[in-house]
């Protein structure tokens, strides 16, 4: 599949708008088990990405992903900034404009490892990783209606963080009291996956 300038631009617009529209909800989730800034953090980062959409989209897919990652690192702050930043920086390392589903899945798997290393965290710790990991599974599975399946997987995965006890992130300071709330970073990951899947559908 060819990720041309039009798709690159559409990806930014879709993801950024989804995050910006969801910012208040993300902040509300973070107020419950964090410090109430995940929405503002993510909005700040993706507003910067959106503002640079044209310049970014002119770049090759790899450079584009790297630049998005760098923008997030420099704009988001908090825990989510280095983590989402690391994710995109890692994706940018290996993806070319013309990519197969397998290549994307491999790059995503490597990016997840990079996030784990940066966050000293793992699946089951009630973080964004708990969305990335099942989404990677769905991506590897491939097949018809993949976009829909990615969305459903992400949605379920975010919900599955509700009963978890947090091991990483601010929510871990709450111990047992972190149980019963959705992880804000899991929800923002779901929003990103959802927006990407929308663009995939539009291209299909």
């Amino acid at each position: 599949m060819m990720i041309d300038r039009d798709i690159r631009k559409r990806l930014i617009v879709a993801v950024a708008n989804r995050i910006i529209a969801g910012a208040e909800e993300l902040t509300d989730l973070d107020r419950a088990i964090g410090d109430g800034d995940h929405g503002s953090n993510m909005r700040r980062g993706f507003e910067a990405v959106l503002a640079a959409a044209d310049v970014l989209s002119d770049k090759s897919f790899g450079e584009y992903l790297t630049a998005v990652g760098m923008t997030l690192v420099m704009k988001v702050g908090g825990a989510s900034g280095p983590l989402y930043g690391t994710l995109f920086l890692s994706l940018g390392k290996s993806l070319a404009d013309d990519v197969s589903r397998e290549q994307v899945a491999d790059a995503f798997a490597a990016a997840i490892e990079a996030v784990k290393a940066r966050g000293k965290s793992d699946v089951g710790h009630k973080t964004m990783l708990d969305v990335f990991h099942p989404v990677l599974g769905a991506l590897r599975g491939g097949g018809d209606g993949l976009p829909e399946r990615l969305k459903a997987t992400a949605r379920r995965a975010a919900e599955d963080t509700i009963p978890m006890k947090a091991i990483r992130g601010r929510a871990s300071f709450l111990g047992e009291r972190s149980v019963g709330h959705m992880d804000p970073g899991a929800r923002s990951s779901e929003l990103i996956v959802d927006a990407v899947a929308d663009v995939m559908e539009g291209c299909a």
């Binding site: 503002s40 702050g77 908090g78």
Partner: peptide, 10 residues
Amino acid sequence: GQVFTSPTPD
């Protein structure tokens, strides 16, 4: 950084 948000590396 911003309120309760770590400053960025730059």
